[in-house]
């Protein structure tokens, strides 16, 4: 597992804080808490996951209690409460995808990466997990990769090979 100090400090860039302000402006006065889910997505897109330090800062920004952030972050499946690989392959594991071979794809990704579901590869690049229906059943099997949540459809073992190799290239160039 990748080692990350839980207590590392988190700084929100000016750009990010401006984005927060734009999000808050979408709701009536006094209803700023509505911005919580979109703001958590923005923070996760920058940091890769939501540390308690980051969540406390979000709470301070929205002027709500930290527990109000934790309870939301822990309820919704998209928020990561521990560090992930740079690329998180989230493969749909629900009925229609399984009818056309999603389980084999999930097993194959595990073998290929050499880690178990939820673990991070030694180079810090990849983790994967099965997720519930992604509303793409007609293009099954599918996986998505955040923070843009790009979809990869009609997966085969070959297309998974290609995808992982492309992502490695992308990482080595950045």
């Amino acid at each position: 597992m990748l080692k990350v100090e839980e207590t590392q400090s988190v700084e929100f860039s000016t750009e990010l804080v401006n984005k927060f302000a734009e999000i808050v402006s979408r709701y009536p006065e006094g209803k700023e808490k509505s911005a919580l889910l979109p703001i958590l997505h923005e923070v996760q897109a920058v940091n890769g996951w939501l540390s308690s330090v980051a969540m406390d800062k979000v709470a301070a920004y929205l002027n709500i209690a930290p527990i109000e952030v934790y309870e939301v972050a822990s309820f919704y499946s998209m928020y990561f409460l521990r560090p992930q690989g740079k690329f998180v392959l989230e493969v749909c594991r629900t009925g229609p995808c399984c009818l056309v071979g999603a389980e084999k794809i999930i097993d194959y990704i595990g073998e290929k990466l050499g880690v178990k579901e939820g673990e991070v590869t030694a180079d810090g690049l990849f983790s994967y997990r099965g997720v519930e229906c992604l509303a793409a059943c007609g293009f099954a099997p599918v996986l998505q990769i955040g923070p843009e949540y790009t979809f990869y459809e009609n997966l085969t073992t070959n297309s998974v090979d290609q995808l992982i190799s492309d992502l490695k290239d992308k990482a080595s160039k950045s």
């Binding site: 509505s34 889910l37 979109p38 958590l40 997505h41 919704y76 499946s77 928020y79 997720v131 229906c133």
Partner: peptide, 8 residues
């Protein structure tokens, strides 16, 4: 547009 957090 409001994004959800992944919950059926």
């Amino acid at each position: 547009v409001q994004p959800g957090g992944g919950a059926y």
